[in-house]
Simulated scan of single mutants.
Amino acid sequence: MAILAETASQYTLAHLDLPTEGYEIAILACNDARIAELNTEFREKPTATNVLSWPANSLAPEVDGAIPHPPPDPDPVMGEALGDIAISYETCLKEARDTGKPLADHVTHLIVHGVLHLLGYDHIRDGDATLMERLETEILGKMGLSDPYRE
C-alpha cells in the first residue's frame, strides 16, 4: 500500500502543479471498527466509511466551485504536513467487489480523493463536487485508471 499511496499522492500533487517532494501525508490503513470509531469521534456518524481525512491547513475556498487556497510551500529541511488520511480495508474491499473494480484501483481513487480533501477540495456544494470529481477523473486517467464516476 505504501507504493500505491505514494504514487497516488505524487500524481495528485503534480496534477495541481505542486511540488511532489517535501509534503508529508500520514495514511492509516484500518478496519471498519476503527474507522467507525474515527467517524463517530470526528464527524458524529457512528458508521464505517471508506476514507476520512484531516487537513493540516484550512484551504477551502469561500466560493462554491472555486479552486482552494494553495498549501504552504514545504520547508526544504522540515517539509510541510498536509494532513492525515484513514482508509478502511474492509469497506474498500466490499466496494471494489460490489463494483467489479480491482482493489488497487479503488484504493488509488480513495487516496487521490483524500489528498484532494487535504488540499481544500470538497464535495458538499454542487460546484465543489463537480470540480473535485473532474480532478479525480483527470488524475486517475493520467495513471491509466478508468473514471470512477462512470457506470
Rank of each mutant, 00 (worst) to 15 (best):
P19F: 07
E21N: 05
E21M: 08
G22T: 00
G22R: 06
G22A: 03
Y23L: 05
I25D: 03
A26Y: 07
A26W: 03
L28Q: 11
A29D: 09
C30L: 04
C30T: 14
N31R: 13
D32Y: 08
A33G: 07
A36E: 03
E37N: 07
E37T: 14
T40H: 06
F42D: 15
F42W: 06
R43E: 14
E44F: 03
K45G: 07
K45I: 15
P46Y: 02
T47V: 15
T47L: 10
T49G: 05
T49N: 07
L52C: 08
L52Y: 07
L52K: 04
S53L: 01
W54R: 10
W54C: 09
P55D: 03
A56S: 11
A56V: 10
N57G: 05
N57H: 15
A60K: 09
P61A: 15
E62D: 14
E62Q: 14
V63I: 12
D64C: 05
G65F: 02
I67M: 14
H69C: 11
P72K: 12
D73R: 05
D73V: 06
P74M: 01
D75E: 04
P76M: 08
P76N: 10
P76K: 10
V77W: 01
G79V: 06
E80C: 13
E80R: 13
L82D: 00
L82H: 03
L82R: 09
G83P: 06
D84P: 02
D84H: 08
D84I: 12
I85A: 04
A86N: 01
A86C: 01
A86M: 03
S88E: 00
E90I: 13
E90H: 15
T91W: 11
C92V: 04
C92T: 05
L93E: 01
E95D: 11
D98H: 05
D98S: 09
T99Q: 11
G100I: 00
P102H: 10
A104D: 02
D105V: 11
D105C: 08
D105T: 12
T108L: 04
H109M: 04
H113C: 00
G114H: 09
V115K: 11
L116H: 06
L116D: 04
G120Y: 00
G120R: 05
G120C: 07
D122R: 15
H123V: 04
H123Y: 11
I124T: 12
R125S: 10
D126H: 12
D126S: 12
G127R: 15
D128E: 02
A129D: 14
A129S: 13
T130E: 14
T130D: 12
L131E: 03
M132H: 13
R134H: 11
I139L: 07
G141S: 13
